[in-house]
């Protein structure tokens, strides 16, 4: 059974094929309206995440399928102490495919070990969020027209930001991508990612605390939110949350074709004055998320069908 737990589960060719399919759905949505007729997606959200859940649900509805599930652990049997593996085995009796979000890292992998239907990791704690990575890759490719030969800056919370970790892992397989890591000292990229991903493959990267200084070099700027729930300590959160805010002034020396991405939700790290700037891609990115999830659901269901 094929699942998507970690972006590294997919080969580069599989990623390109998913992005091609997503682009085709954008171009010809009418051809896909009935593709998942009589199929059911279960959205098991053990931790609330409205926009990811809505994106999955909208994706399934646009494929003509149906959706069932829960949006927080309190309304699931997990609140009664049921294990992830039992929940997955039961839900597999009712649904054809499962999108699962869980606050504990590795929970979707446990689910995949026991599932009879494909599992999509819709985020596990601070660990992985592969459909966000697919969304980011699709956005970069649509905005830039390529997935190679560019400089990308990651700004904000690079320590706990799982979207950053996954995207770096995915881009490390692309040709000639330069990484610029912009964060306060306390929120730097974990050393194991620098060591195992960037250094191991000899990929060029720069670490800095100064967003303005590196702005002119960037082709893509990936902004992230400093998330309250990733901190054990409220004081640390309040001290760091405003560290890296993107304003029109900071964009003055940016390239005219810069692409600004953000996984959303945004709090205040991108000034709303930037929203009207054509370089702001984050709302198009959210839309891409729906299309790439449609492509993923289609591919996984197709493969599951072949296995039967």
């Amino acid at each position: 059974m094929k699942h998507l737990i970690d972006i590294r589960d997919l080969t580069q060719a599989e990623i390109v094929s998913l992005l091609d399919l997503a682009d085709d759905i954008v171009a010809h949505p009418e051809e896909y309206r009935e593709k998942c007729h009589y199929k059911k997606l279960a959205t098991l959200f053990f931790e609330p995440s409205t926009r990811t859940r809505l994106s999955f649900e909208a994706a399934m509805y646009e494929l003509g399928g149906q959706v069932l599930g829960f949006s927080e652990a309190a309304s699931s049997s997990a609140s009664k102490g049921e294990s992830v593996s039992d929940t997955i085995r039961v839900v597999g009796c009712y649904a054809d495919i499962i999108a699962m979000r869980h606050p504990k890292e590795g929970a979707p992998m446990v689910g995949a070990m026991h599932s009879t239907v494909p599992i999509i990791n819709a985020g596990d704690g601070g660990h992985n969020h592969p459909t966000q990575t697919l969304t980011d890759l699709m956005t970069i490719r649509r905005e830039k027209g390529r997935l190679d030969n560019f400089t990308i800056g990651f700004c904000g919370d690079l320590k706990f930001g799982r979207t950053v970790h996954s995207l770096i892992a995915a881009l490390s397989r692309c040709e000639n991508v330069n990484f610029v890591l912009i964060s306060p000292e306390e929120l730097k990229l974990p050393s194991y990612i620098k060591k195992d991903v960037l250094q191991e493959q000899g990929l060029p990267y720069v670490q800095t605390t100064d967003l303005t200084a590196v702005m002119p070099e960037l082709d893509v700027l990936y902004m992230t939110r400093v998330q309250r729930e990733r901190f054990f300590n409220e004081e640390d959160y309040l001290r760091l949350k405003d560290s890296y805010i993107l304003t029109p002034e900071k964009l003055q020396n940016a390239k005219p074709d810069l692409s600004i991405l953000h996984p959303l939700p945004r709090v205040n790290e991108i000034d709303t004055a930037i929203d009207a700037d054509p370089r702001a891609c984050y709302f198009r990115q959210a839309l891409n998320g729906k299309y790439v999830r449609m492509a993923l659901i289609l591919k996984l269901l197709e493969e599951a069908q072949h296995e039967h």
Binding site: S83, V84, P103, G106, V110, G125
Partner: peptide
Amino acid sequence: NPRCITSVEPDLPQVFQLAN
């Protein structure tokens, strides 16, 4: 790791894979 699924599901096998 206090955020690992094994921290709340003690019956899961504890498995470590050689990474390097």
